[in-house]
């Protein structure tokens, strides 16, 4: 399946960016092959005065991913992602590769609520 992982860089060795809306990059990762399919620069989200989480959720929906793996997720992004049926896994740490391992081992549990307040 295709997931979106927030990252500080463009490849598997980059660190997970703990923020969703204001993450540096969005990596679309094929979890079966363990490969980065696409890296999207999130300059727009980092610069957004407000609603970065909504913008990020739109990008996730446009990229057609079925899940998000990140550090945290704010309330607006959370409800937008729910509307698009995209699962949210928070608590990912270390590199993108490590986050993928966490995901495969079932160490990341799907969030059922926003875990940070707005303006992340």
């Amino acid at each position: 399946m295709k997931v979106l992982i927030t990252a500080e860089g463009k490849d598997l060795d980059a660190n997970v960016d703990p923020r969703f809306g204001r993450a540096a990059f969005f990596l679309v990762v094929d979890t079966d092959k363990g490969e980065v399919v696409e890296a999207v620069d999130n300059g727009a989200g980092r610069g957004a005065a407000q609603g970065a989480g909504v913008q990020a959720a739109q990008t996730a929906a446009r990229l057609g991913v079925s899940a998000l793996i990140s550090g945290h997720c704010g309330p607006n992004a959370f409800s937008a992602m729910q509307a698009a049926n995209i699962k949210i896994y928070t608590g990912a740490t270390g590199t993108v590769r490590h986050a993928l391992e966490q995901f495969h081992k079932g160490e990341l549990t799907p969030a059922d609520d926003a875990d940070v307040r707005g303006h992340w």
Binding site: A48, A49, G51, V54, Q55, A61, R62, N76
Partner: peptide
């Protein structure tokens, strides 16, 4: 203002 989210569906 990102008050509208286009979630494709």
């Amino acid at each position: 203002y990102n008050a509208l989210g286009d979630m494709q569906t």
